[in-house]
Every structure is written in C-alpha cells, then in structure tokens.
Nucleic acid binder design. Structure first.
Lengths: 272, 272
DNA sequence: ACCGTCGTTCCGTAAAGCGGAACGCACTGT
DNA sequence: ACAGTGCGTTCCGCTTTACGGAACGACGGT
C-alpha cells in the first residue's frame, strides 16, 4: 500500500486541523472523513474520530451517511472502506476532460518509439495527478505505479505546467518545498530559474528529485484560451536517469514535445 | 456523452424523490448533488436546485462546499463539474480490491487467445460496474466504451454473479426489469430459470439483451468465504453475436471459465 | 469467564443549515 | 445603447438538525 512510502505519522493524533473555511460544516467534515481513507484502506469510527478530533458518535453518523450514499462501503467487521461509486464518478470526471481519449493514441506511439513509460498528468491544487500511464510492455524494471499523485514542485510535469501558469507557480512557491531526495530543488530562487528555463526550452526535466534513480522529461499539452495557448496537462517520459537524461535525451525531448503538440492539436480539433 | 444513450427525461423536473433514510441530511443531499453530475457533465446551482427540489441557495452552498473539498470543480462560467479528486479516490477504491492487478494478466492472455474485448465487472447495488476492460488492439468494430455501468439483469456478468448470490438475485427481481432490446428477458420466471441454468453450467450468456448486435459470455471469479466459494466479480467476453454465440462458443466458454478460475486461484493465493 | 475495545444508539442543547428575497453580473434581443 | 432575463451568490431570521457525552451490546483476545 501507499502507506509504506509515507513518513511515519501518529495515527491517533489529530492530523487534520479541521479546516472550515466554508459553510456546511457537515459536508466539510464528510469530505475530511473521505480524506482519512486516502491514507488507510480500512477504518472504523473510533480511528476516524481520533484522526479528525470529532466525537465518536459524529464519526459514526458520517460513516453511515457516506455508506448509504455509496461513497463508502462496509467491510465485514463494521469498518469501512472507499466505495466503488467513487470509481464511477472518477471515471466520469476524467472521461469528460476529453483528454484521455485524445491522448491515448499519441501515448501509445510515444511508448513504442521510446520504449519507456509515458504519463499523462494534470494539476489538482499544488499536486500533479497522473490520469493515465502506459508502460513499456517488456520492461524488467517498472516505475512504482503506486504514485498517482506527486507534489508539483519536484516533477517535470508540475514544472512544465507551472511555467505556463503564473497562478500555479505562486501557489507552489507559497506552499513550500519538501525534500524527497538529495537532488530535490528546494530553493525558491533556483525554482524560479528552472521555470524560466522551462519556458524558453518548451520542456522540463526532473533529475531524481522525487524517486532516487528515476528521472523524467515533460512537455505541455495546451489549449487556446483567449488567443493564448494555456497548458492544461502534460506528457512525461519517466525512466532510470541514464535512459532519459543521457545520450538519448535529445530523442526523448523531441519525441515527447511532438507527441504533446499532436495531442494539443487533436484537442483543439475535438473541441466542439 | 453518455446522455445520448439515455431515454429523454425532463431535466427541470424533480427526478430525485429525496430519499432521506439516514441522519445527516446535508450529507445525504450532498451525495444527491453529486449524483446529478452522473447524468450531466456541467451543472449550475439553478438546475441542481430544480432537480433535487431544494432551494437555490442550498444548492449553491452545497456546490461551494463540495468544490472546496475537491469533489467538484468550477468551470469558467460559474458552473460546476466532477472534480479530479474523485478520480483519485476511485483509483484507490479499486486498487484496494486487489482485484484488478490480479486479473489483468489473465485478461490480457484471454484477449490474445480470443481476440475479443474482455471485461472485469463487479456489482454495485443492482448494477454491474466494469472495473477494467481490455480491447483487442486491431478491431475495426469496438464495443461502445461509454458503458461503464449496466443494469445487472440484462448482462451475462450480472447473471453469473446473481446465480451465486441469492441476496443479489432477489434485489434484482425486486428492482424490476427494463427492456432495452427485443431480446431482453423481462419475465421474472424466465429469469429465475436462467439463473438456475447458469448455476448448473458455471457460466452465463446474454444474447443482444442490452445492445443490439452485441452478446457476451461471463464466468465467475470467486473467493472462499465460510468454506464455500462466493462470487465477487466476473470476467466476460463481449463481441458481435456470431463471434461469441456461434461456432466459437465452446472455445469462448472454455477460455473465459479457465481465466476466471485462474484469477480466483491467484486471488486466494494473494490473500494475506 | 473476564475485560478491553469497538461500533452503535439515545438525548438535551445549541449551533448550523434551510428557504425566501435581494444583489450583481453577463448575455440577448430589440 | 438599453432594458430585460437568466444566472450564481449573499444576507438574515427561524427552525431544524447535527453535535457531544454517556450508556448499551457485541466481539475477541487473554
């Protein structure tokens, strides 16, 4: 499970500061309850209550309500887990982006061309979410597929998107930088410099800044918005460092840029 | 969009009877709000309020709360759509079933063996939800991939699961039968007969009962529960009728049953 | 058989959300 | 250009609703 790759945390401490910046408190806490299941697969009322700092009865009611709504499911022993209705909603959410269907052919060709894993990422908040990933079939080493979500600052996808979106860039800078490896860039000034370089070059790189041994190159997928191209997603190639940043780098850069440009054009064409 | 394949409905009528059988009314209505987006991609406060029969102000607050939680996203013009956090949760939900990862290899082999589209389906409520689908690469005719969810009564997957789960069978019978094609079985007595035959044979069929021209054969994936095998999912082969129910039927039946049995065994082995 | 823990239920209190109406804005048809 | 219509959002008082604490029943380990 993903828990293994996370830093150890006190499960019985109130980690959520109960961020209530909106009305409808019950809905906010209901979402917070869902969030608890992002880290742990199966939870009961007591753990949820402890984690959120709410009464056990409240947690119990929340769980029951979410379960009748199908967002959670009851396991055998009275505990709960994420429900399959969430899968349904999630599929609808990405299907309606009209992005995956358009990008999949280009991703397949790029994978065949480079024989590496190709990712399609979008931004949610200050994180990068990988909506699709096609892996080279006969690879003996596979990128750890547990990572569906990265902080944006340390990934090439996040950089290529932040380079074209000043609001995202400032959000990332305000959020702060977490060091994952000795190579992770955590200096704001250096980060700004990287974004400037990314803007000039039209692609971004990340050298072992999130997972030791793994690097990536990303190019933006854009949509015309107000006459100017605006990045909405990115294609990235992720592989062991020597295979993307070594002598193959020019080929990878050219390949991913062409593929991303093709997806951008197809997206524009599919815009009805 | 999926809307096109649905019967025409009055969008401005209150379709949801406001089923509040649970406490935490706000959470229930919040889930109902999410449900609205299952049928339509983009909605505003007014339409949601009309559809659920609630005040416009209430709908607006709900939408805002769900958006701050990431379950919804704002579009440019003040309307909302399903948020990508739902995709994240949905992926976690299926990943934790430990089902897709186990089934994917067998599905790939079955696809290569039969050169047809293979589906992995589970039951949610009285519907079948397809968690994974691998399509034969060089098929000129593709099954309409918009269908991620079917009513259980008209699909081979639903029958093979209902045959081994009396509770599901009665739920389907109580829910009632909708006719999609001239071939759809809508007689309860005939349906019971089909379930009995399914139990004997160990597989189920559906002959153009949901989509004209398309038929399917399904076999159950089981897990041992209380000493008895209990169906938890099903593999199905879907293709134009002549390709699954014609002279190839014995090969298809044998292939899908073997694959499902292998997944069941792997699932048992992976159970830690 | 005991005790600890968990999920669930009950109940009084107080806060939280509901509905109606008013506001600001964007678009449209004259 | 202008008014009209539709939208999403906000405000406010009243009522409902959900919160928290404690008690209950069940399960499982010792």
């Amino acid at each position: 499970m993903t828990v293994l790759s996370l830093p150890p945390l006190d499960l019985d401490a109130a980690v959520a500061p109960a961020e209530d910046d909106s009305p409808l408190r019950s809905v906010s806490t209901a979402v917070a309850v869902l969030d608890c299941f992002a880290e742990e697969a199966e939870l009961g009322a007591t753990r949820v209550a402890a984690r959120l700092g709410i009464a056990k009865s409240t947690a119990c009611r929340m769980l029951a309500a979410l379960a009748t709504g199908g967002l959670l499911e009851r396991t055998g022993s009275g505990r709960y887990r994420l429900g399959l209705r969430l899968f349904e909603y999630g599929q609808l959410a990405v299907d309606r982006l009209m992005l995956r269907d358009v990008a999949l052919p280009a991703m397949g060709e790029l994978r065949e061309l480079l024989r590496e894993t190709i990712q399609l990422g979008v931004v949610v908040g200050t994180d990068v979410l990988y909506v699709e990933r096609t892996e080279a079939a006969s690879m003996n080493v596979r990128f750890r597929s547990e990572h569906r979500r990265n902080p944006a600052h340390s990934s090439s996808t996040g950089r290529v998107l932040a380079a074209g979106d000043p609001a995202l860039a400032t959000a990332i800078l305000e959020r702060g930088f977490v060091r994952y490896t000795p190579f992770t860039v955590v200096d704001p000034q250096r980060y700004r410099q990287i974004l400037a370089t990314t803007r000039e070059q039209g692609y971004a790189t990340s050298r072992e800044e999130f997972e030791p041994g793994w690097s990536s190159i990303a190019a933006p997928i854009t949509m015309m918005r107000g006459g100017r191209p605006h990045p909405v997603a990115a294609l990235s190639v992720v592989a062991p460092t020597s295979r993307v940043l070594g002598h193959r780098k020019p080929a990878v850069v050219q390949g991913v840029r062409r593929a991303a440009a093709r997806v951008s054009a197809d997206l524009e064409r599919a815009r009805s």
